[in-house]
Nucleic acid binder design. Structure first.
Lengths: 191, 191
DNA sequence: CCTAGAATGTATTCAATGTCAACATTTGAT
DNA sequence: ATCAAATGTTGACATTGAATACATTCTAGG
C-alpha cells in the first residue's frame, strides 16, 4: 500500500521495526511484505528515494547564473542541507547498512546519477580554474569534505557536550552557518 | 569474564548479537550480562576502548620534532588510519548508535580526552600560522575533513562500483594514499 | 584450613522482531 | 459478471535482548 511508501518518509530512528511501521500504518504485521520482499528492500527503497531528493536539491542549487565557484559552494551547501533535512535517508545512502548497491538496480541507478552530477560540477571547477590535481583524488577529497560536515552534524546532533564542550561547540558553530563552513573548507578553491 | 573483553576486539559487523558473541566465546547466552548490564553498555565499553586507542595513535603520530604543519597532517593521517584499522570502534565512536555519551562516564571521559587532544594541536596551528579564523568553526571544519575521509573509506569499502565507477574510483584513489589526500584537503594550511 | 560473600556462570522464561506460508478480500480489466 | 492480480490477514517459527532464580567458583579474613 501506498501508505507504507508515504510512511517511509516518516524519518525516524531507522532501527524502527517493520512491524512497528506496519502497526503505525494501521495494517497488519506482514502486510509490508506484499510490497517489499525483505526489510533490506524497504530500506533500499528509502535509499533510492533519498538519491532522487538529493539529485533534485543539487540540481536546483546549481542552476543559477553564478560563477562556477559559487555554484560549487552551493552544491556543497545543498548536500549538507539535504543530510540535515533527511538524516535517515542520508544514513542509508552513505552508511554501510545497505551494503553493495548492485543488489538493487533502482538504488544503484539513482546513486549513479547523483554521483555523476557531483563529479561533473567538480570537473567543471577543475577545468575553469586550471587546477593541476589528480582528478580522482580531488573528487574523493571534495566528497569527503561535504560528507564529513554532513555526517558529523547528523550524528552528533543531540549529544550533550557537557565535559567536552569544546568539541560540541565547534559542531554547533558549523551547523549554525553551513555556508560559511563549506566556504572555509574549500577556501583555497573559491578565492 | 575477560574472554568477552578480548572478544570485544574481534572487529565484526557490529550488529552481531550478544548471544552469538557469547556462543562464540563458549559460554552461555546470558553470561555477558554479568559484565554488561545491557547491550549498549557492552558497546559503550567498545567505544571507550576505541577512544583510548585513538588517543594513543594520535599521541604517537604528533610526538615528533617536525613542524606544526607536519604534525598536524600526521594527526589527520593517524585519525584516518585508526578508522580503517578499527572500523567497528570508529562507527561506535562517531556514529549515532551510542547516543548521548553522558550516560556512560568512562566513555564520556575517554571521548573528552581525545577531543581535547585534537583541539589542542589545532589551536597550536592557528597560533603558529597566525590564522584569522573563527576558532570554533575552524575546529569543526578540520574535524569534519578528516572524519569525512575516514567515514567514506570505511563505509564505501566493498561497494562494487560497477556503473558509478567514477565515484568509487575516487574513493579508491583516496584510500591508496591517505597522506596525499589529507594533504590535499588541508592544502591551504600546510603551504 | 574454613567459611562467608563476591564474582561469575547457567537454565529458563518472556516479549519483540523478521520471515514465511496458507488463506481471505479487494480491485481492475475484459 | 468474472477472473486474475494486487493487497491484506492470521498464525506459526526461529532468533534476539532482557530478566529472574539458581548454581558454581574464587578469594579474603578469621
Amino acid at each position: 500500500m501506498r501508505l507504507a511508501i508515504s510512511h517511509i518518509e516518516e524519518e525516524g530512528t531507522e532501527k524502527l521495526s517493520l512491524r512497528a511501521l506496519a502497526r503505525e500504518a494501521g495494517v497488519s504485521q506482514s502486510a509490508p511484505y506484499r510490497h517489499f520482499p525483505t526489510q533490506r528492500c524497504l530500506l533500499a527503497g528509502l535509499g533510492t528515494q533519498g538519491f532522487h531528493i538529493l539529485h533534485k536539491s543539487i540540481e536546483t542549487a546549481i542552476s543559477t547564473d553564478d560563477s562556477i565557484e559559487e555554484r560549487f559552494i552551493a552544491m556543497g551547501v545543498a548536500y549538507v542541507e539535504f543530510a540535515l533535512a533527511h538524516p535517515t535517508h542520508y544514513h542509508l545512502m552513505f552508511g554501510s547498512v545497505l551494503g553493495d548497491f548492485s543488489d538493487y538496480e533502482m538504488l544503484h541507478n539513482a546513486a549513479s546519477r547523483s554521483f555523476a552530477q557531483v563529479i561533473e560540477i567538480q570537473q567543471e571547477l577543475v577545468k575553469a580554474k586550471g587546477l593541476k590535481v589528480d582528478e580522482k583524488r580531488f573528487a574523493g577529497v571534495i566528497w569527503a569534505g561535504v560528507h564529513g560536515i554532513a555526517s558529523l552534524l547528523t550524528n552528533m546532533h543531540g549529544r550533550s557536550g557537557a565535559g567536552h564542550s569544546n568539541a560540541m561547540a565547534s559542531i554547533k558553530t558549523v551547523s549554525e552557518d553551513i555556508e560559511d563552513s563549506v566556504r572555509m573548507m574549500f577556501d583555497h578553491l573559491v578565492r
